[in-house]
């Protein structure tokens, strides 16, 4: 953030107190998605139009004739949230309105699986929208089935011995689309998330932000541990916080490399993991960060 030409670090006191999303939402206790939504809306501001496909977030933020949003919110079909956002942006451009952020906010299914074709299309057209994926790593709105964003060995409601394949790296896929701004974020680092939304809103063109948002039901953690679990994922190196601006990758938070087992074993969905499997995941994290041996 810049103040009077000088680069200063943003603090929590700089964020507005007003909530454009949140009060009264029907989320579960300690809902990671709702936390992500509140943190993001503090930066995006009132001049924002949001589209959302079928997901937990759409359900918890609007039931019957009530809504938890104070901004225009459009509930789209499952596979077309980025396409609807593109249309809204085209309409705004035709009317000459320039100060509005158009956001499509989807879950991991609406981004990586069912909604992928329209996302890829919007990225290829480089439409001036922000696509946000809040990733709870399962299809939680339909009962916790595994999807392409579920990590390896995690137990889900339809794969009770654990998933056999790894997580699809959506961030790399979006970087491969050659879009201007791609970033990963999580709810335990709100200032990091806020900076990224600020950059995405300022970027003229397609931006993609992938937020890890723990879900206490699916991950089998106590309700007060959503934020703590996200922090463990970051500090163990399991979830890397970075941004890619015009193809150049910068890590925005250096993890302290706590053992990955600390992150995995605090969750019920990984309770079936053997020592070898934990070591396999630890080795994968070590090789990703170019480290020799975990201590």
């Amino acid at each position: 953030m810049r103040k009077g030409g000088e680069l200063v670090k943003m603090t929590l006191k700089d964020l507005p107190q007003q909530d454009l999303f949140g009060p009264g939402n029907a989320g579960c206790r300690g809902c990671g998605a709702a936390i992500a939504g509140r943190q993001a809306m503090k930066v995006l501001g009132a001049r924002t139009i949001i589209t959302m496909p079928a997901s937990c977030m759409a359900t918890l933020s609007g039931l019957n004739q009530k809504t938890a949003w104070s901004i225009p919110f459009y509930h789209t079909l499952f596979e077309i949230a980025p396409a609807v956002s593109s249309g809204i942006r085209a309409s705004l451009e035709a009317q000459g309105i320039k100060d509005v952020n158009v956001v499509s906010w989807a879950g991991d299914a609406g981004t990586a699986d069912i909604g992928f074709q329209s996302l890829s299309g919007a990225a290829e057209r480089n439409d001036n929208i922000i696509h946000v994926c809040y990733d709870n790593e399962m299809y939680m709105n339909t009962g916790g089935q595994s999807g392409s964003q579920t990590p390896i060995y995690a137990m889900t409601s339809n794969q009770q011995k654990g998933k056999r394949t790894g997580k699809k790296d959506m961030l790399k896929i979006m970087v491969a689309h050659d879009v201007g701004y791609v970033a990963s974020a999580t709810i335990s680092h709100p200032l990091d998330l806020a900076e990224k939304f600020k950059k995405a809103a300022a970027h003229d063109g397609f931006s993609y932000i992938h937020i890890m948002a723990p879900c206490y039901r699916g991950w089998n953690i106590p309700t007060d541990q959503s934020v703590a679990t996200a922090r463990k994922a970051v500090e163990s190196g399991f979830w890397e916080l970075y941004e890619v601006v015009d193809g150049k990758k910068t890590r925005t938070h250096e993890p302290s490399f706590i053992p990955v087992s600390e992150y995995l074993m605090s969750q019920g969905r990984f309770k079936n993991l053997s020592t070898e499997q934990v070591k396999e995941i630890q080795d994968a994290v070590n090789s990703h960060f170019g480290r020799k041996e975990a201590k």
Partner: peptide
């Protein structure tokens, strides 16, 4: 410090 406000899911 306002950290709790940022982490409250319900506002």
């Amino acid at each position: 410090c306002l950290e709790c406000i940022m982490f409250c899911p319900e506002g």
